[in-house]
Structure formats: C-alpha cells, structure tokens
Amino acid sequence: MTRLVRSEVAKLLTIRSSYALVLMTAVGTAGIGVAVALAPHNHGLQRLIFPARGTPAWYDIVFSALALAEDFALVFGIIIMTGEFRHKTATPTFLAEPRRGRVAAAKLVVSLGAGVVVMAAAVLAAFVLGLSFVAAGYGDIGEMAGRLGHVLPGYLAATVLFASYGIGLGALLKNQVLALVVGLGVTAVVEPILIAAWPNVGRWFPSEAARSLETTSRLAQSGFGADLGHLLPSWEGALVLVGYALVLSLAGSLTTLRSDIT
C-alpha cells in the first residue's frame, strides 16, 4: 500500500495540472478575498450591517474566500481518479496492481494530502492578502492572523474531505467531464435550490455538510443573510463527508472500477 501511495504521489508531481490547480486556488482565493474586502459597507442587503474594515468580524468575511479551496479540492480529487481513464493510464496502473480497490484506496489517501496542499496555497494567499490590509492600516497583524488561525481548521477539514469526495465521485462515474459536471453542478446548482426549498434535505449534501465544519462567523458563512439553522452539527457534517468519500469509493470499486478495461 505504501508503494501505491508513493506511486500516486509521483504521478501528481509529474504533471502540470497539479501545479496549475494549486496556483489557481491561491489566485482565486486572493481574488475573492479582495472582492469581498472591497465590497461597499452598506450595499442595502436586508438588515445586515457589514462590519467595519479591519475588525475581526470583517477579517472573518474576507477569509471566507478560503471556501473556494473546497471546490478546487473536489476538482483535484476527480482528476486524480478520472485522469486514469481519460488518458488510458488505467491499463498500466491496473497491470501493475490488478487489485483495483487498493488503487482506489491509495488515491483516497493521496487525495487527503492534495487537499492539504490546496488549502495551504489558499491560506498563503489569504495571509498575504491579510498582511496587505494590515499594511494599508486595517486592523493589526495579531488580530488578522488570529482570525485566520481561527477559521483555518474548519476550512481545512472541509477541503481535505472534499478532495476525497472527488475520488469517490470519480471512482463511481469514471468519466472526467461527467464527474466534474455532477460534482460542481451539485455544489453550485442543486444544493442552493434544495437549501431554499427543503433545507432539511439540503443539509445532508456535500457543500452544506462542509459548511457545518466551517468555524467562521455565522455572518461570513451565511453569504449575508441566509438562515443557517438547518446546518448539521460539525461532527455530523464531517461524518457525512467521510461517508460520501467512502461510500462512493466503495460503490465505484464494486461497480465501475471493476468493469472491463478495453
């Protein structure tokens, strides 16, 4: 198993798309952070009061950009698994290790590491952004770093679990485009609809489960105004995501991954 994990790591380190994904996460996080930070104080949304720049609550909102890492981790996980089929490297991979479930297990392990790396890139971008704001006179470095440290564990857990959820989705669907459409489609389209209509159903879906892990302020998490009462307790949310990763991976290992490689 150690050998397979090392092999999977070597595969990731030798293609450009891995580096591109990490870089895009950093750039995207910084971009969203800037956009949120520069939002007008009073944009007339409901009765919300946007916190003053430089306050801890404001930094919470800026750092909510870290949530972007979850989506990139999902994409990463999907690519790790489906890339084998897209480029037909599944043949040499399964010739080297015909017990395909073990390959999927190694990819699950590696995806956790990929999630950590993606999050590290996002945090680095957020920290540099925070330093810039401190330098511009908004708050002090201790407070800024404190808020980043406070919100980090939740986003990290969600990001790591999203990468493994991507492995599961990829194992089950095998087709890269399909897996990306389904994965991102559920997050971006299906879940918002469910949350609006049936929040008690929607909370069992991946992104909502991830949100239950986020330890940022309710205001930052809410996307300004949504009711968050439906979210699962954090530990349940974590279990739901672990469940998605394991159940989908197992289902994939028993169905699509077993299918003939022709």
Binding site: K11, G83, H87, T89
Partner: peptide, 10 residues
C-alpha cells in the same frame, strides 16, 4: 497493449 495510454504531459 494497443490501447494502453500515457499522460501526454508526463
């Protein structure tokens, strides 16, 4: 094998 693949970027 004929249809064995390679990642083009590797």
């Amino acid at each position: 094998l004929e249809s064995s693949g390679f990642h083009p970027g590797r």
